[in-house]
Structure formats: structure tokens, C-alpha cells
Design a protein around this nucleic acid. Structure first.
Lengths: 326, 326
DNA sequence: ATGAAAGCGCTAACAC
DNA sequence: GTGTTAGCGCTTTCAT
């Protein structure tokens, strides 16, 4: 059994409140007593029980992060940055992969609430909006506007889509396609698609859009969808992928169909994950400021915890990283 | 303020212990009372405070996972599977990225202990072994044997290295290289390297080994190291990479040096992460059973929590996935 | 400068 | 069947 504050008090022959005081540096304690108490703590290898402290203080120093899956590199990087920044702010992070499972998401929401997390960062939401509102906990979402007073952070999706599409067109593409994750979810990232069609139309460029499945990270599905596109529209000479992962599979499929990139088809991805640079050829992509997004999300969460006002809309600029697929 | 058990008791006009009883389904409660209590809970949107429960029960249902960084795809997949399996067992998971930072790792260790996690899964350890032993918490490590009674799980690194090297040689390679992460850390994955040199020597095949930096996921470093190898040994016709991420950069560098894979140089990776299939050409690799490793690790942890005996050594077989780089 | 006592929200003897 | 009480480990008035 780990030593408690009582053990320390008994050992030194003082009251627990005295020990508590040195623990929290409150009030006056004679130097010798303080020394003795520190010594006893060392000897008994004492560590304050943070659960008990949390119960009393009503402050857990813990946040929850709910994302579809950390196995997706974009979320992995996001998660890594959030954890990093949380650590700097003395917060621990419980990681929750919803797998787009409504039930799991709901369970986690309650779980987190019951465990007194101070707030939740949401990169996934399949559960109904009301369930979030009634949770009564500070919330920040990624790429989802789910309520008038729930702040969200996202990259400038429309502008990102615009840049990608303009680049394709200015590079000489005449027949362009967009391959995107499901557009069924009400996500801000759907603006990438809006921009694509608007820009292509404005330039009078032939274009088409194909959606992959809803689960975002399903390679078999990607390859099938892309192959089908190449079969039905062999003349396509430019593709905008809504994520770098999809772009990687496009690259793979191009190789299968003997199309060289960027000569036969040009390709632009989205996200700017680390792997996009390792691809052959290195992927031209719309680079989201992942680290800033992560830090901003946590800042917004902490502000809410501290009852400070926050902006609901938080859109960060992307950077077009022109590499060798365009 | 969230409703407490007291609020429910007051509302229904009973004692808190009665409410607690229905909460925990203990003892006899008249049906009508039970109904009333349930109703009150619904109305007040009551949720038991798990922090209070943890304090009393001395059971937090929480584990800690310490890894170098979840931004590395291998750890991302591992983490995802651990979380998945933990959820199935009613455990929550605190994610800790040590970034190979001794101080951060140490802090997290204490943090987790103080927060009464039931055990820790360690995919990173820069801290001294004694610090782990004295933590007095169930522990399971990945790829690291840090103590006689601390169970570890790993893939069969030697056998993996052997298969990879034999494949290179049987495919006709005459001058082979291994590019590996730092060998300075006392990790079991170093056996991949041992196997490489032993097998190559036994076959009388010329071979060389180059180490990248210690931080495992540093692209600039990878590219430099690989380029240097190609400059000094242009005749190399086979490479074994100690991770798929490194293999991806080798592929990229091959393209830079106009070496075609697998014609000019053959390549075998290690890990079997999702991305290895998306590469062009799809990467031949030693596929670790990541999901099983994750589940086994948690099983071992839970067994320790329940005071059940466990095997210290837990080595799982790899599968050689022969794709198109050999 | 230190101790005594109450209480954070919940559970579990022990009464009756 | 239900209430009373003590206590999990800690912090914080309020005394002295």
C-alpha cells in the first residue's frame, strides 16, 4: 500500500493538516518541521493521491480527445501535438477513438464527464448535437460547427480547395477530378469540395467528383474507387484528393495504370502529413497548420475552463506546398 | 453544478445509501422506490462521480500508455489497437508521448502513479530501470526487457531480420545494406540487426550497416544517411530497413538516384504499417502482428492487476509480406 | 505555528 | 427494506 498523508503525519508526529500545508506551501511552518516532513516523504516514497485531490478541488487536470482513429496519420499528428501542448499546460489527455461508432462515442462522452475531465476536444461527432450541448462541459471541435456557442477550429477549407484547384488549372489540366471522403457528414471540410466545383466551373473546366466511403481510412475502397474513375474517364489529367492518404493511393493507382505523375496526371493532396514528403514523387499538397490547430484548440478549451470568452469561429490559413506532383 | 447522490436522495426523500444501493444493484429495494430513484436520476441528469468512486474503490479503470510519439505510424497503430481493446475491457487510456525525453517520461510516470492508474504499458524507456521497478505498478513493455519480472511483448525480431535478409539473398542480392534506427538503446529490435549480419556473413555476402539518429522519426536525417550510403556504395543491390518509414525514404532516395526498385535494388521493410501497402511499388516487409501485440500487452497488464501469474517473455511471430520491392 | 473537524461524493458495514 | 455511520485521502476553515 502506498503511503498516505496520514502515514507521514504519524511518522513525524504531527497532524495531517500540517503535512497538507507543507504539501501545498500554505501558511507558516517552522523550518525544522518542514524538513522533517520532507524527509519522511522521501523515506516513505510518498506521493499525494491525485484522485483525492481531484475530488476535493473539483479540478482533474484532465481533458478528453475524441477522434475517429489515431491510426489515421492526420489525427495521429494532431493528437501528438495536442498531447504535447497539454503536457506543457499540466493537462493529461485521455484518448478516445470513436471509430465513427455512435455508441462508443456516446459512452466515451459519459465516461469522460463522469471522470470529471475539464473539457473535451472533438474531432469526431456522429452523436446528435443535443447530446453534446447537454453535456455541460467545455467543448472544442475540429472541422465541425455543431452549435452557436461551441467553438471550432479548422483550416480554411474553401481557400485550400481553391488553391488546389487553381493550381491544377494553371498547370494546364483540362479534365479534373476530385476524390473525397464522404460528403454526407456535415463537416466544414466539405468546403474543399465546394471550392473545387466552383473554381472549375468558373474556369469552364470539365470536372467530376467521386466520394469514397464514410470511414475515411479504408484502402481497399480507395483503390477501387480510383480505378473505376480511371476506367471510366481515362482522359483525366488532374486530381485533387481531399487527403494525403487518398493521394497516396491515387499515386499507387496511377502507377498501376501506367500514368506518370505529373506528366500524365497532376495531383494535389490535402493535410500536409509527414508522409506526404516521403512519397514518390513528393506530393504537392495543401498543408494544414496542424500544430497551430492543435494548440489553438487547447487554448480555446482552457479559456472556457477559466470562464474566459472565446471566438466561436477559428479558421487558420493553409499553405500550398508545391512539390513534384504538379 | 452536477447533481450528486445527495440531491437524488433529497429529492426522493431517502438516504444516500439507498440511492447508492440502487446504483450498485445491491441488497433489496422495493420496486416503487427503485423506480422513483431512477426517475429522479433521469430528471436531474445524474451521473455518478467516478472520481469519488475511484477514491473509495481504489480502482480507477485507467491505464497509461507511454510511447515515444504517436505521430510515428507504428505507434499510432499500436496505440489505436490498445485503446480499442482497453475500451472493450472497460479501461480508459491516458496517452503519454515521451518524445524520448527523460524528464517528461519521469514526470509522466509519477503523474500516472499519482492518478492511480492500474498499470502502465511502456513503448518507451529512457529512464533508468530502477525507476520503473520502484514504481510499484503493473507494467508491460514493448521490445524491451527491463527486468526479470517485468513482462514484455515483442515480435520475433531475430527471425524477422533473418527472413528479410534471406529473402534479399535468395533474390540474388550480392551487396546488401541495413539501415536501422539507433542501436544504442538496449532494445530487442536490435536483434533485427544481429540477424542481418549473421545471415549475411553465413552466406558470405558483402554487407554494411548504417544507423540513423536515435529519434526514430526524423526524415531529414534519413535522407542524408541514405544518400551518403548510395554515394559511397553505389553497387548496393539490396537493403533491409528496420522500419517501413525508413523504407519509404529509401524508396524516395532510390528514385533520386535513378535506381529502380526492385530491378536495381531490392528492399525489405519492417513493421507492416498500413502505409507500406500504399507505397509505389508496394513494400515487401516483415509484418508485425500489431493488433495481437497490443492485445497481449493489455492482457498481461490486466492479469497483473488481478494478481494472476504471467509469462515474462512474450514473443509473437512475424509474417513476411512479399510485395513488389523484392 | 499547529491541531481539530468538517466535507468533497461515494460505498459498505452495521443497525433496526 | 431502509437509515446511520464511518471512512477512502486530501484540503481548508476555524480555533488556539
Amino acid at each position: 500500500m502506498a503511503a498516505t498523508i496520514k502515514d507521514i503525519a504519524n511518522k513525524v508526529g504531527v497532524n495531517v493538516s500540517t503535512v497538507s500545508r507543507v504539501l501545498n506551501n500554505r501558511g507558516y511552518i517552522s523550518d525544522t518541521l518542514r524538513e522533517n516532513i520532507y524527509k519522511a516523504m522521501k523515506e516513505l516514497n510518498y506521493q499525494p493521491n491525485e484522485v483525492a485531490r481531484t475530488l476535493f478541488r473539483k479540478k482533474s487536470n484532465m481533458i478528453g480527445l475524441i477522434i475517429p482513429t489515431v491510426a489515421h496519420p492526420f489525427f495521429a499528428e494532431l493528437c501528438s501535438h495536442i498531447e504535447d501542448y497539454a503536457y506543457q499546460h499540466q493537462y493529461k489527455m485521455v484518448l478516445c477513438n470513436s471509430q465513427h461508432d455512435k455508441e462508443k462515442e456516446r459512452m466515451y462522452l459519459n465516461y469522460l464527464k463522469a471522470n470529471q475531465v475539464e473539457g473535451i476536444i472533438l474531432g469526431s461527432h456522429t452523436v446528435d448535437v443535443e447530446e453534446f450541448s447537454k453535456i455541460g462541459l467545455p467543448l472544442v471541435t475540429f472541422d465541425r460547427a455543431i452549435g452557436d456557442n461551441i467553438p471550432y477550429v479548422s483550416s480554411d477549407n474553401y481557400e485550400g480547395g481553391r488553391m488546389a484547384t487553381e493550381l491544377l488549372i494553371s498547370s494546364g489540366c483540362k479534365r479534373i477530378a476530385m476524390i473525397t471522403g464522404s460528403l454526407d457528414l456535415p463537416m466544414l471540410s466539405n468546403d474543399r469540395h465546394t471550392a473545387f466545383t466552383e473554381v472549375a466551373s468558373r474556369h469552364g473546366v470539365w470536372h467530376t467528383v467521386v466520394e469514397t466511403d464514410i470511414f475515411g481510412f479504408n484502402p481497399e475502397n480507395y483503390e477501387g474507387v480510383i480505378s473505376k474513375l480511371f476506367e471510366s474517364h481515362p482522359e483525366i489529367d488532374g486530381i485533387f484528393a481531399s487527403s494525403d492518404v487518398i493521394a497516396a493511393y491515387i499515386l499507387k493507382t496511377c502507377s498501376k495504370y501506367n500514368k506518370s505523375v505529373p506528366e500524365d496526371v497532376k495531383l494535389v493532396g490535402y493535410d500536409g502529413i509527414a508522409f506526404s514528403e516521403a512519397l514518390v514523387p513528393p506530393l504537392t499538397t495543401v498543408k494544414q497548420p496542424i500544430r497551430q490547430m492543435a494548440e489553438l484548440a487547447l487554448d480555446l478549451l482552457i479559456k472556457q475552463v477559466n470562464q474566459e470568452p472565446v471566438n466561436v469561429t477559428n479558421i487558420l490559413a493553409n499553405e500550398l506546398a508545391i512539390r513534384q506532383t504538379t
